[in-house]
Design a protein around this nucleic acid. Structure first.
Lengths: 246, 246
DNA sequence: GTCTATATAACGATAGAC
DNA sequence: GTCTATCGTTATATAGAC
């Protein structure tokens, strides 16, 4: 059995990535439930996971439509089918919902990224893998990624550093790859920090402006190809082959 | 007198751009005041402009800190030094403040961009000029640009298209330049739409993540240079000179 | 005294919390 | 369902300019 990897000659496509089930909302809720036996007042695990899943998905949906702060708990109650009292069996406050999605969400994303990126050896292959897995994961968890970015400022001050740390940690994966490639002479002597930030910006556009790419019928595979082509012409020495943009 | 332009051999720097006074909040408020003699109940222009300026700048400040929706009119009243009653002499509702900043702000930005970009003739010089003026303007109006992006979803549905139209109009300036360069053979045969979107994403990162570039002491001039270098290696045929990244 | 600008305070609705 | 706090809004009182 030959397995497609993220940066092979025939690269992994989003459909392949999707099948691997890198992220499962049910697993996410199960982990969260078991890690917080005290604060969650529901005893039956199956019920708890089902309702936690509903609450989180509904929160993401409503928040992405009109903002977390504009979403009232009555909105959430109505859309999720749970009573207001039931919501308080799972979360101790509205801000608690926000904090948990941000905190545990960033943890989950970080783990998945690290797990996938360390597979390949060659810096350029690694970089392609990083770009693809980041894009594929943000496509799979589009609502989460959008939420992470847009709702940062509604976190209490003591939790504001969570998204920033996460952003920098992800960027560091990219910067480390760039440094490795520069060290081996495979990459040009670009500024690793600024280039890493640029790659992150390109990756972010995918989930910050879904309307744009949907409207133009750009698939995530095509977008990945374009980002890779752009980065390739800048960082690799063979430079702008430019024949891979379709 | 030799005037530095946006994309000359010795390019305009941000300090030069700043001195030109491309945007003036006082002019902005004066225009808005004169265009809305009915809805603004204050008769003395000087007083009106002063207070309008205060209201708008305070709204931008508070919204960028905690979000427009989270900012109460009591917060705004306190921070601006105006009473709640006074606020209603200038705006008919809280949503009105949001709509006016978005609507008239996007108009002002669009006019400035168009005015500056049509100065240069050569496609590559034009592209450099576009990148610089966009970055410089977003630096000058950082709070506005951040507000534009973050507060879109709090607009009433009928006004949601304003920021989208603005984004696409700005992107079109870039795409038109790319097409011109491709037509003359000066540029590679890149995908103009995707490349325009990529340039926009890079420009946006400057004002969406000010903390990152501040922390690393990256000036807007240096950032512009980096974006231009990256784009140059991708779109121009001489390709990655890569000696201009410092 | 008159007109304009500002301040105060209270209303009804709706928020989060329990 | 209830409670309390706070929201946007507005009616009304006040202060200031000429």
């Amino acid at each position: 059995m030959t397995k497609r990897t993220l940066a092979a000659a025939v690269p992994m496509r989003f459909e392949d990535f999707k099948k691997e089930g890198a992220f499962s909302i049910a697993d996410f809720c199960r982990d969260f439930y078991r890690a917080n036996p005290d604060s969650i007042q529901v005893k039956k695990e199956a019920v708890a996971i089902k309702n936690l899943t509903t609450i989180i998905l509904t929160t993401l949906k409503l928040s992405n439509e009109k903002g977390f702060h504009s979403m009232s708990l009555r909105d959430l109650s109505k859309a999720s089918g749970l009573s207001m009292g039931a919501l308080y069996l799972y979360f101790s406050s509205k801000d608690d919902i926000l904090r948990i999605i941000q905190h545990y969400g960033h943890l989950a994303v970080g783990n998945i990224l690290v797990k996938y990126v360390h597979q390949e050896g060659d810096p350029w292959m690694k970089l392609c893998g990083f770009i693809r897995v980041h894009l594929f994961l943000s496509e799979l968890m589009k609502q989460w990624f959008y939420f992470f970015f847009m709702e940062t400022k509604h976190l209490a001050k003591e939790y504001r550093k969570i998204p920033i740390k996460s952003e920098l940690a992800t960027e560091k994966i990219c910067v480390d790859i760039l440094n490795a490639g520069i060290r081996t002479g495979q990459f040009n002597a670009v500024d690793p920090g600024l280039t890493g930030a640029a790659v992150k910006a390109l990756l972010q556009d995918w989930y910050l402006k879904p309307w744009k790419y949907k409207q133009r019928r750009i698939t995530v595979d095509k977008y990945a190809q374009h980002v890779i082509g752009l980065v390739e012409s800048y960082v690799t020495k063979q430079g702008a082959s430019n024949d891979n943009d379709r």
